[in-house]
Amino acid sequence: MKKKKLVKYGKYGYFFSIPFIVAFLFFSLYPIIYTFVIAFTDLKGLGTELNFLDEPFANFKSIFANKTFLRALGNTFFIWICNFIPQIGLALLLTAWFTDKRFKVKGAGVFKILFYMPNIITAATIAILFKALFDYPMSPVNDIMVSLGVFEKPVEMLQNKMMAKGLVSFIQFWMWYGYTMVILISGVLGIDPEIFEAAKVDGANGVQTFFKITIPNIRSILLFTLVTSLIGGLNMFDIPQLFLLGGPDNATLTTSVFIYQLAFQGSHLYARAAAASIIMFILIAVLSAGMFYIMRDRDAEKIKKEIKEAERQKGEEA
């Protein structure tokens, strides 16, 4: 009777994926295909007819030759790096403080809740608020700086390109560090407490525990954070568009804002915007693949082994 049948569970993988696939096919496939198709046409304005270009990659060529696009690409990376590094740094630090029982941070719960709050408020509200704060010639920041004697007279801060980029980076950082922290904390909470107990018994201090136990155990969550932040950062749209409309002098123009302005304003250059979107998609895909490669681990093999083990045991029981 032993090993009479080896139960095949693989089919459940297909079953459980059906809802996702159906919803995807129904709601998203057409829009995605449409985007890819129009990149090879001359669609613009209010046109609905698709005329394919004689030279299929003309739109792509024109995007690569577009100085404003290249500039937007540079801005996007600059703003993303300037907000992501401090963001992940602070989030990791806070995670370490809040999850380490040794610190016993009083009110940690309240802090955790509050830090995510900037993410709840709509980007439009935040954009208006920051514009008002740094306005010229009358604004709270200008008033304070003048009364402190830092500025002799009000300064048109938002006309300064570095200042504008820095502010957009700061807003992004401030809106998202709490989100990143919440994700990392949820990852830490998923770690088996016994592991921490064992580390404690072994006499590991806080720093050691964090780097030797916590970080390796939340590696897959870290990968998620890195990849989603890369995607979110390179598609950054709300704040740059709402805060300064990509200005001054295109200093805060990100590729997404550029694509939006191409497609939904002015000449409504849908085809070119679609080509720019595809270029961004490929760029993001390549960079993400790099991240997956760097962060790769034995997860896959480990799971496979465990599944096999589970199926074998079940088979044995039967």
């Binding site: 613009k44 577009n66 100085k67 404003t68 696009f69 048109e156 006309q159 300064n160 390109k161 001054p248 002098d249 295109n250 550029f258 302005q261 191409l262 304003q265 002015g266 000449s267 250059l269 070119r272």
Partner: peptide, 24 residues
């Protein structure tokens, strides 16, 4: 007017931005 660039550059940048964003 804020003194960030001179007159000719402003006009040139205006033209190139319009060309890049509106294909005009």
């Amino acid at each position: 007017t804020a003194g960030e660039k001179d007159r000719d550059t402003a006009i040139a940048d205006f033209k190139s931005t319009v060309a890049d964003k509106l294909a005009i």
